[in-house]
Design a protein around this nucleic acid. Structure first.
Lengths: 203, 203
DNA sequence: GTCTATATACCGATAGAC
DNA sequence: GTCTATCGGTATATAGAC
């Protein structure tokens, strides 16, 4: 007779734990979340957590790896294949903005890793999550600026979108901040215009 | 006879504690730093910390307030007064990039507050630190785009600069990343060209 | 695979001597 | 104003029953 189990098998338990851990780590960071917090969210004891993961660090790494893997899959379909470079850039920004605005947990984990991640974790993040799409956007950038620095340009494009999303909680206190500035469509339109036409094109 | 004191007076002690606490909180965040860590960095006991601050939260708030106040002063002299709007924008970006690249502690505390700050702390950050200069840059934006959204534009300008600095540890693992991309002059030149001429102007 | 109970260490914060 | 000593609580992690 099996002991009574909350989950059908170990894989289910591991997935359930990770799914509860991701939002907790996103909101409070590694040091801000205790094993007790996670156990309580899952509905099991802390001792059971240690049956599935050897320690907190491993549970954290598995959690961010999962969150990043899910997102990497989503990003991979973001780049359109047809149209002029300008049209494809416009489409990419619209999709990227929407994707990033929908998943605050990914964004927060990403931000936290930029602050706290060691070389190993940042390398994982770069190679497993961003590299594939980074290359594609860099190619698109090369079509637009054959003699320009594609790396700098991809960072700028990403940064424009992400910084608008990151600063959402702050901008309400800054001059001219309005609720519509949180609308992904508004952000995407602004960013696209700025990139294609420069400041002067935004007036 | 006075008891032997490490500092000449209480104000010196408070300043010394805050100056040690700022880099610690910047690197590890509120929950990642213990009162023991701070006490050891200063070279006093934890009990002495509690003589100068009622609790950890207060010490943290005083630390970020100090870090932000220092920076607010620095930012306030960044905007040039003479020249065409384009010249003043160029000058602002160069100075802002240099200022932000020099102080990683401020940048990290700012990033952490975007993730963890409650409404009260974010309001303080906005009103005490950014608002004065935000208004001036918004005015400059209005000269360039009289009918455009100055708020969105100031966020975009700041985001372009800050995201390049934030992603420094990650970019070495992404295609085309080179050491020169961490040079504030290179970043400022790229951002300025992008803003004034759009993508096409960067080729 | 889950639990209760616990070992061990560290946490924030305090008491009280000097 | 600083210290040593310590309190009560919580942290990670483990032991061992079921």
């Amino acid at each position: 007779m099996m002991a009574k189990s909350k989950f059908l098998n170990s894989t289910d338990a591991v997935n359930a734990i990770i799914n509860e851990a991701i939002p907790l780590f996103a909101k409070a960071g590694f040091t801000g979340v205790s094993m007790r917090d996670i156990a309580q969210a899952v509905g099991i004891s802390t001792a059971s957590l240690y049956h599935h993961f050897p320690d907190k660090q491993t549970l954290y790494l598995r959690s961010i790896a999962q969150a990043f893997a899910d997102k990497a899959q989503g990003i991979s379909t973001v780049l359109a294949k047809k149209g002029t470079p300008e049209q494809r850039l416009t489409k990419f920004i619209a999709r990227f903005t929407k994707l990033m605005s929908q998943d605050s947990h990914f964004r927060m984990l990403f931000q936290r890793e930029l602050l706290d991640g060691d070389e190993t974790r940042l390398r994982l993040l770069a190679e497993q999550v961003f590299q594939p799409q980074f290359v594609n956007v860099a190619k698109l950038a090369k079509e637009l600026i054959p003699n320009g620095d594609a790396h700098l340009m991809v960072i700028s494009i990403s940064g424009l979108v992400l910084f608008h999303l990151e600063t959402t909680p702050l901008r309400q206190f800054l001059q001219g901040g309005r609720a519509e500035h949180n609308d992904p469509d508004v952000i995407a339109r602004h960013v696209t215009t700025l990139l294609l036409k420069g400041i002067k094109g935004c007036g």
